[in-house]
Structure formats: structure tokens, C-alpha cells
């Protein structure tokens, strides 16, 4: 008997497999078997239709153009905000250097203002980490799209393309728990963290 692997998903292969199974049964098809065959044929047509629709989406464009462009744009955002933040820090350092040349009362106010700017500038680290998370998500989508595209373009009889070898790096506890900034609604405050730490004492 010719081997057919229905898991390959091609409608013809599914239909052929079903016919082989039903053909091997003794006697005429029962109503149930005929219904089953009909359902599987319909399923095969759905798979074929989905394949045609996916091909029409030009999914190759997603990996060839859209995702690389999106990641480049995000990298540019990080670079521009880093440059702007560093310029702000340059000015702050200049203001700090002037502190000794202004009256004490004004110097104190100047110092406090500079401190607030430093605190505010830490936004660049947080936004950078958030953008890195988005880039990682885009790369994961890119990988999935590539896998789907390869599967549909390789033909029904071709075996699934083996996964590309990826160097295995040990996942330490620190890496496993490195998730980046939480969304504001789920992030713990400094006060909550202090309370948690105190519970260990």
C-alpha cells in the first residue's frame, strides 16, 4: 500500500488517505463512512482555500520589508531619545558646574532642579527596554511567518523544513526572570517592594 501522511495537510493527500482507509473496509460504504468522507473532502477544500488566501496576502512582504522596517524605525527611536537625553545631561552637568558661582540660596534651588531632571531622564532606559520587548515580539512574528511561508511553498509532499540550529545558551535564573518593565497596572511600587523586603527580616 502506498504510504500517505495525512498530517502533511494537503487536501489531495487527506482525501487519498481517507479513500484508502475506506476502500480497505469490507463491503459498501455505510452512511456514516460516506458522511465522514464528505466532511473530510470539505475540510480539504477549506485547507486549499486558506492556502490560496495566505498566498494572496503576500506574506513574504512581511518578512522582507514590513518587519525589518518596523524594527529599524524602533531602533531609530531609541537612538534619537538617547541622543536627546545625553544632550539634556550635558546641559545639566553645565548647570551643576555653575552652582558654585551663584548665591547659596539659588545654588540649592539649581541643584534641586538638576536632580529632578536627572530623575526624569531615566525615562530613556524604561522606554528603551519597552521598545526592545516590542522588537523581540516582532522578531518572533517574523519567525512564525517564515515557518508558515516555507511550509506552504515547499509543496505538500515535502517534509517539514528542519529547525535551524540555534546555539544553546544556558538559561540562568537571572535570564529567566528578566522580563523588562511591567505595565503600570501590574508593576509593583517602591513602597510595595520595601514592604516585601521587610517581610524577610
Amino acid at each position: 500500500m502506498h504510504d500517505v501522511n495525512p498530517s502533511q495537510g494537503h487536501p489531495d493527500a487527506i482525501e487519498q488517505a481517507v479513500r484508502q482507509v475506506l476502500g480497505s473496509l469490507a463491503g459498501d460504504m455505510t452512511m456514516t463512512e460516506a458522511t465522514l468522507l464528505s466532511e473530510l473532502e470539505a475540510l480539504g477544500r477549506e485547507v486549499q482555500r486558506a492556502k490560496t488566501e495566505i498566498a494572496a496576502l503576500r506574506v513574504d512582504d512581511i518578512n522582507a520589508s514590513h518587519i525589518p522596517r518596523a524594527t529599524d524605525e524602533l531602533d531609530a527611536v531609541v537612538e534619537h531619545t538617547a541622543n536627546a537625553t545625553n544632550e539634556i545631561l550635558d546641559v545639566c552637568e553645565g548647570l551643576e558646574a555653575m552652582q558654585s558661582r551663584v548665591p547659596a540660596s539659588e545654588s540649592e534651588k539649581l541643584g534641586a532642579a538638576v536632580t529632578r531632571i536627572y530623575e526624569a531622564c531615566s525615562f530613556q532606559d524604561i522606554t528603551g527596554q519597552r521598545i526592545s520587548k516590542v522588537v523581540s515580539a516582532l522578531k518572533a512574528i517574523e519567525g512564525r511567518v517564515a515557518a508558515v511561508t516555507a511550509r506552504f511553498s515547499s509543496g505538500a509532499d515535502a517534509p517539514p523544513r528542519p529547525e535551524e540550529a540555534v546555539p544553546v545558551t544556558p538559561v540562568t535564573e537571572g535570564r529567566a526572570l528578566a522580563n523588562g518593565p511591567q505595565l503600570p497596572a501590574s508593576a509593583s511600587s517602591q513602597q510595595e517592594i520595601d514592604k516585601l523586603l521587610a517581610s524577610f527580616d
Binding site: T115, Y118, E119, S122, F123, D125, I126, Q129, E173, L177, A178, N179, G180, P181, Q182, A187, S188, S189, Q190, I193, L196, L197, F200
Partner: peptide, 29 residues
Amino acid sequence: TAESKTENVVAAKQAGVSNYIVKPFNAET
């Protein structure tokens, strides 16, 4: 760090961290 989940704080404490500051932070903290 910006890692503010309870599991992160607990892991750091168990590893022997002296204190833990969540970003964004202020100078007073």
C-alpha cells in the same frame, strides 16, 4: 531595575541582595 515582579524581588532577596530599587526611581530613594 525595572523588574518589579514579586518573583524578581524574592529571587534577589534569596540570592542575598542588600536592597532593591525599582526604576524609575528618585534621588531620595
